[in-house]
C-alpha cells in the first residue's frame, strides 16, 4: 500500500517509521479499510460451523482441541491466529471433513454432517466442499495435473461441468487473477508464488461461497503477497485465514480469532502500529 522511496544516496540502514505509522493508522481498531456489514443474524444458520469439537490425533496423548467452536457466516472475513501446533489447521481439516472429531458437531447451513447421533459418510461432505474452498498450506499438495489449465478445470469437471464449460471457467478464472495465458504451463515448473496463485485459481474456479486459507503468505514475495491481498479484496467476500502475518491479516480480515488451549477465542491483541528499522532501505520496496 505505502511505498517507501528513499534518496539514492542512503546506503545506511533506513528507518521506515514514517511509512509504517501512516500505513497502520487506519488499520488500528478498524483493520480493514472497507468495513463489511455482517449478517450477524443468528436466526440464519452459518454457512459452515463446528460446535464443541474434541479432537486428539491417534497415537497422541494430548488432545489438540477441547471444546472448540467456530462459525463461518456469509460476509465475515476472519483471521485465525495461534501459535504453532495450537490446532488451527486441525480445526479447518475437521470443518472440511478431512478429519473426524472424537466428539462435537460439524454443520453445513444448519444441517449436521457430524454429530453423536449419526454415522458420517464421505459423501455427506460433498455439498459443503462445493461451497467452501480450501487452499492448502503447501501448493504442491494441491497441484497435481500436468498443466495449469487441467488443474484449474479439475474441480469444475468433478462437479459435472462439460469439458467446454470447465475450460471456459478455468480460463476466465485465470484471467481474473491476472494469469491469462498460463493455461499450458507445466505446474511443477512454476515458481512458488505462481504455484500459490494457480492453486488459488483452482479453488476459485469451483465458485465457492467462502474460502479457507491455511497460511497463504508463506514463501510469497512482497509483490505476490500484494497481489493476493488485492485478489481477496476483489473476489472473496467471505473467508477465514490462518496466518502469522499480522500485516496481511490486517489487510484481509475484519475480525480476529485465536486458538488457545484447544478452544477458539476472540483474539485479545489486534493489529497495531509498530516501527521497525531494516537494512536494504535503499532498494525500492513495499510494506504490506
Amino acid at each position: 500500500m505505502s511505498t517507501a522511496t528513499t534518496p539514492p544516496n542512503s546506503g545506511q540502514p533506513h528507518n521506515c517509521a514514517h511509512a509504517h505509522a501512516h500505513d497502520h493508522a487506519h488499520g488500528h481498531g478498524h483493520p480493514h479499510p472497507h468495513p463489511h456489514s455482517h449478517s450477524d443474524d443468528d436466526a440464519t444458520p452459518p454457512l459452515a460451523a463446528v460446535q464443541d469439537i474434541h479432537f486428539t490425533y491417534s497415537g497422541s496423548a494430548e488432545p489438540v482441541l477441547r471444546g472448540a467452536s467456530l462459525a463461518l457466516r456469509p460476509g465475515r472475513r476472519i483471521g485465525l491466529l495461534g501459535h504453532n501446533g495450537s490446532g488451527k489447521s486441525t480445526l479447518l481439516h475437521l470443518l472440511m471433513g478431512l478429519l473426524r472429531p472424537q466428539s462435537g458437531r460439524v454443520l453445513h447451513r444448519g444441517v449436521p454432517l457430524v454429530s453423536e447421533t449419526r454415522k458420517t459418510r464421505e459423501a455427506d461432505f460433498v455439498p459443503l466442499r462445493r461451497e467452501v474452498g480450501f487452499l492448502f498450506q503447501n501448493s504442491d499438495d494441491q497441484l497435481f495435473c500436468p498443466t495449469v489449465l487441467e488443474d484449474v478445470a479439475f474441480g469444475p469437471l468433478n462437479h459435472g461441468a462439460s469439458p467446454a464449460e470447465a475450460r471456459a471457467v478455468a480460463e476466465a478464472t485465470l484471467e481474473r487473477l491476472g494469469f491469462a495465458g498460463f493455461g499450458s504451463r507445466v505446474t511443477h515448473r512454476l515458481s512458488g508464488g505462481e504455484k500459490k496463485m494457480i492453486a488459488l485459481a483452482a479453488v476459485l474456479a469451483m465458485q465457492p461461497q467462502a474460502l479457507l486459507l491455511d497460511e497463504p503468505t508463506n514463501d510469497l514475495d512482497p509483490h505476490t503477497r500484494d497481489r493476493l491481498i488485492a485478489i481477496l479484496a476483489a473476489h472473496s467476500p467471505t473467508h477465514l485465514i490462518i496466518s502469522h502475518d499480522w500485516d496481511f491479516l490486517a489487510h484481509t480480515c475484519d475480525s480476529f480469532l485465536t486458538v488457545q488451549d484447544g478452544a477458539v477465542r476472540t483474539a485479545t491483541h489486534t493489529p497495531h502500529t509498530h516501527v521497525h528499522t531494516h537494512t536494504g532501505g535503499d532498494v525500492h520496496h513495499h510494506h504490506g
Partner: peptide
C-alpha cells in the same frame, strides 16, 4: 504423508474416483 495430503486436496475439489478429461 504427501500422498495423503494430495488425496485430501483432490477430495476437497470433488474427486470421487473418476477422472474427467478436459480435452477429449
Amino acid at each position: 504423508d504427501r500422498a495423503e495430503r494430495v488425496g485430501q486436496a483432490m477430495r476437497l475439489r470433488g474427486f470421487a474416483g473418476r477422472f474427467h478429461m478436459l480435452a477429449e
